[in-house]
Structures are given as C-alpha cells and as structure tokens.
C-alpha cells in the first residue's frame, strides 16, 4: 500500500498538469483556429487531367487596351498575379522578367494581373521593369478572376501555368524559385 501512494501522486500530477497545459494552450492569445477544408496548399499543385481555363477571359492592360487570354493560344502561358503590397510578389517579378527575356522567343508568354488599385499598379510598374503585359482592374475584379482560376483565398503570389495545347499544367501559391521555374518552362516550351 505504501508504495502505491507515490505512484498515485505521479499520475495525479500528470493529469492535473496536462489539463492545465491544454487549457493554457487553447486560451492563449493568437491560438490558431482549426484547419478546415478552406485551407490551401502553399507550393505547386498539379492541375486536373484535361483541365482548361474558362473560355474568353478578357483583361485590360495598364494603358487600358483590352486583350484576351485566347490571344496567346499556342504559347506556354504563365499568369502571375501580383500586388504592390505583396513583398514575395515583388521579389518574384525579376525572376519572371528574366524568364520572359530568356524564353519569350521560344514560345513563353507571361501575363501579370495586378490585384491592386489601378493607380498603385501604374505607379509601381516602371520600377519593376515588366517585359510582359500587366493586367489591371479593380481589386475585387482581380480577386474574382483569381478565384475563377483556382485561388479562392486570394493569397499572393499566385501563378497558373497553361501549356501550348491550352491545358492547365499547374498552379503555384507562393514564389517560384528561378531554378524550378526555368525547369518547368524548359520542360513545356512549344518550340
């Protein structure tokens, strides 16, 4: 009997402390809500088989000129959503500029819709030295477009890669590194 008492004390201590630890964890400031189905994966996600973009998606360039994604049929297309308030986007854009310069003559076309106030995008564009079309619209319209293309949460940067045959290849939430983007492009260039 006497040897059972210390064991009982150990068990009781563990139970009380575990309960207290759980309570403190759940009630602490910044406690995370449960992950649910609304969460999205950071990184690349392969597209479904034979997936295509919605037809007839129209955009407007910085100077107001309208264009359609259908204008780029037959090219490897990367639609890269960005914004002036998004530091990872601003970090990724020089990589995209390099890719457009390196592979543009081989059938790559990048398009950069700005999820931003139009004037903010216009002010930032010269400094970012885009060598591909930047699309603008209201932030709400761009969020809606991004949702249509598979990003309902609106996180940036976000890219959709479409092969020359019009089939969606993959989506990327977060930055591409130069190495992984170059490999993806070289693997899928039409020329």
């Amino acid at each position: 009997m006497s040897s059972a008492r210390p064991n009982l004390a150990i068990v009781a201590a563990c139970v009380v402390a575990l309960a207290a630890g759980v309570a403190v964890f759940l009630l602490r400031p910044g406690a995370a809500p449960d992950l649910d189905d609304a969460s999205a994966s950071v990184g690349a996600t392969p597209a479904a088989a034979n997936e295509r973009l919605p037809a007839n998606l129209k955009l407007a360039e910085l100077d107001g000129r309208a264009f359609s994604l259908d204008d780029y049929k037959g090219k490897l297309l990367i639609i890269n959503f960005w914004a002036t308030w998004c530091a990872p986007c601003l970090h990724e854009i020089p990589v995209l500029v390099t890719m457009q310069q390196r592979y543009g003559t081989k059938g790559l076309q990048i398009i950069g819709p700005a999820v931003d106030d139009i004037e903010d995008a216009r002010r930032a564009a010269p400094g970012l030295k885009f060598n591909y079309p930047v699309a603008v619209g209201t932030p709400e319209a761009m969020l809606d477009l991004m949702s249509q293309l598979g990003n309902e949460q609106g996180g940036l940067p976000f890219s959709v890669v479409i092969g020359a045959d019009g089939l969606v290849l993959e989506r990327q939430l977060g930055e591409y590194s130069e190495v992984e983007l170059a490999a993806l492009i070289e693997k899928n260039l039409p020329n």
Binding site: P6, A9, I10, A13, C14, V16, A17, A20, G21, V22
Partner: peptide, 16 residues
C-alpha cells in the same frame, strides 16, 4: 506524496 505531486507539476505542465 504531496511534495512529490507538487514537484512534478511544473515539468508535466511544460511538457504538455
């Protein structure tokens, strides 16, 4: 037992 109980509380709390 009571002292042992009390002495184990901080460790078990921190671990959990």
């Amino acid at each position: 037992p009571l002292i042992r109980f009390a002495s184990l509380l901080p460790l078990a709390f921190a671990l959990s």
